[in-house]
Amino acid sequence: MITSAANQQIKNLIQIGRKSKARTEQDLFLVEGIRMFREAPRDRIIKTYVSETFYAKADTPAMLEGLEFETVSDHIFKLVSDTQTPQGILCLIRQYHYTIEEILASRNPHLVLIENLQDPGNLGTIFRTGEGAGVTGILLSRNSVDIYNPKTIRSTMGSIYRMPFIYVEDLASVLPALHENGITTYAAHLDGKNDYDRENYKNGTAFMIGNEGNGLSGELSSKADRLIRIPMEGSVESLNAAIAASILMYEAYRQRR
């Protein structure tokens, strides 16, 4: 059992949890909690860590069968955990590496393009909702929040394991490839010509979602095939990025059902 914060494994777990650079260099990320553990593909789990209290549960040994794991004292586990009330289990997982070709391989793509999103909860919610709405891939600008941020991972509720995604230096640079594959791009924008539910999303579709505070950049929105708007009542000008994305994704899903 690991009982010291000076243990090299514990130091490394803390670095991976807190530092994007450490995650990138080691090509790993952390997931925490029983649900995230159960849904994790076994072939991607590098190592599992459990608290002494969790390990003492009757069903834990069977749950860990075939996996490399370490037990950690409850006190040390709390140092590593990113949550207020740790469930007592976390895993090191190999990162995912998709290609644009894989993301465009779907017969009828339903994509989301994310520009400079900064809130981990928003990104995680888009991944989770996107899976539910049949999104086939997510493209993110390099300046968007790290998908492997523990808060983002937690917000995906397991969708991180199943939703293809890539980061690109410049979203505008991938638009020609989208057009070559018959994908129409739609920018959620205050200057949208049509309400979002007046468009046809039954064929290849890509929704552009911008930064929480500034929305889409003028450069990217100017390259969209269509500007669409979500109608508002009262004095509200715009919605939270994740909520706006959810409305658009589910409208496409509704039309395709």
Rank of each mutant, 00 (worst) to 15 (best):
Phe207His: 01
Glu251Arg: 08
Lys78Asp: 11
Ile46Arg: 14
Thr185His: 02
Ile243Lys: 11
Tyr148Trp: 01
Tyr253Lys: 14
Tyr161Ser: 05
Pro120Phe: 10
Ser81Lys: 01
Pro176Lys: 06
Ala241Ser: 15
Leu113Tyr: 06
Tyr49Val: 01
Leu139Arg: 07
Ala56Leu: 01
Leu28Thr: 02
Thr136Glu: 06
Gln26Pro: 06
Glu199Thr: 09
Lys47Trp: 03
Ala188Gly: 07
Val174Ala: 04
Ala172Glu: 02
Ala177Arg: 15
Glu233Asp: 11
Lys21Glu: 13
Ile126Cys: 06
His179Lys: 08
Ile34Asp: 15
Leu104Phe: 01
Thr71Lys: 12
Val80Asn: 03
Ser20Cys: 06
Ser4Cys: 06
Thr48Glu: 12
Glu233Ser: 15
Gly192Glu: 11
Gly88Pro: 09
Thr125Asn: 13
Val236Leu: 13
Thr136Trp: 05
Ala105Glu: 14
Met63Pro: 03
Gly88Ile: 03
Asn7Arg: 03
Gln9Leu: 15
Thr156Ala: 08
Ser222Met: 07
Glu169Lys: 10
Val112Gly: 03
Ser173Asn: 10
Ala105Ile: 08
Glu115Met: 12
Tyr253Trp: 15
Ser51Asn: 02
Ala241Asn: 12
Lys78Asn: 12
Val50Met: 09
Phe165Lys: 10
Leu67Ile: 00
Leu239Ala: 08
Val174Phe: 03
Glu39Pro: 05
Pro231Ile: 00
Gln15Ser: 14
Ser141Cys: 09
Thr129Trp: 07
Lys78Pro: 08
Ala5Phe: 04
Phe69Ala: 04
Val135Arg: 04
Met36Lys: 13
Lys151Asp: 11
Ser155Thr: 07
Gln26Asp: 14
Ala206Asp: 10
Thr60Leu: 04
Ala62Asp: 11
Ser238Thr: 10
Arg18Lys: 11
Ile10Leu: 04
Glu32Cys: 07
Arg44Thr: 01
Pro164Trp: 00
Phe77Met: 02
Ala105Val: 09
Tyr186His: 04
Ile45His: 09
Ala5Cys: 09
Arg142Ser: 12
Pro120Cys: 11
Gln255Arg: 05
Met249Ala: 11
Met1Lys: 03
Gln95Trp: 00
Arg142Gln: 14
Gln255Phe: 04
Arg94Ser: 13
Ala224Pro: 04
Ile2Ser: 02
Arg256Lys: 15
Gly17Glu: 02
Asp191Arg: 05
Tyr196Pro: 14
Leu227Arg: 10
Lys57Phe: 08
Leu92Cys: 13
Glu237Ile: 12
Leu90Ser: 00
Met63Thr: 15
Tyr253Glu: 14
Asn108Val: 08
Tyr250Ile: 08
Thr125Asp: 08
Asp27Arg: 13
His179Ile: 01
Lys78Ala: 09
Ser141Phe: 06
Ser222Glu: 04
Glu25Trp: 02
Glu68Leu: 07
Ala40Asp: 04
Ala58Tyr: 11
Lys19Ser: 13
Leu190Asn: 05
Ala187Trp: 04
Asn240Phe: 00
Asn108Ile: 07
Leu175Ser: 04
Pro150Ser: 12
Ser51Ala: 01
Asp82Cys: 10
Tyr49Arg: 04
Arg257Asn: 14
Arg128Gln: 08
Met157Ala: 15
Arg154Pro: 03
Asp82Trp: 05
Glu131Gly: 14
Ile103His: 11
Glu237Cys: 10
Gly192Ile: 00
Thr152Val: 10
Met63Val: 10
Leu104Gly: 02
